[in-house]
Amino acid sequence: MTALKRIASWLYSIADGLSAVLLTAMFVTFIIQVVMRYVFNYPVGWTVEVQTIAWIWVILWGQSVTVSEADEIRFDIVYSSVSEPVRRIFRLIFSAFIVGIYAIALPAIWDYVTFMKIEETSYLDLRFDYVFSVYVIFTIAVIIRYGWIFYRSVRGKKVAITAAHDTSEPLES
């Protein structure tokens, strides 16, 4: 592995690890919240804010970095029943659509997210443009990912977008 590749894979591990950290934060603050209220009879409110921010981030950051195409929830009845050349056409169509529509919306999304600097979260006083910035990351990541699927499909290469299916059919009696 070249040094560059090593750094890239190291950076990816960190980015990927952030998903786990976000979920840990949710879990730990929930426990703190229950313990503070039930055991110490001194309820706290900031935990709710950490949880909801982590919830947004775990979904959109996770979609940007951690989730692979095989993990995505899709309706694959048709896709999995057609041949690879047809699948390739399907991939070309849907990846072109999503890259196009997300790219067209990107300036408006940027405008909204930066506009939200006018509001702050209640306890942590975090500006909402920071909280919602993950949506910009998500949009760009999806554009890159589906751009790549489009590119591979144009070149005639396979892309595994569905999970390895359990093909064993039920045993008819």
Binding site: P43, G45, E49, Y123
Partner: peptide, 14 residues
């Protein structure tokens, strides 16, 4: 004092 009261979220409400 010591009564756990549900209030809407946010530090102003709390």
């Amino acid at each position: 004092n010591g009564v756990t009261l549900r209030m809407p979220g946010g530090d102003a409400w709390q």
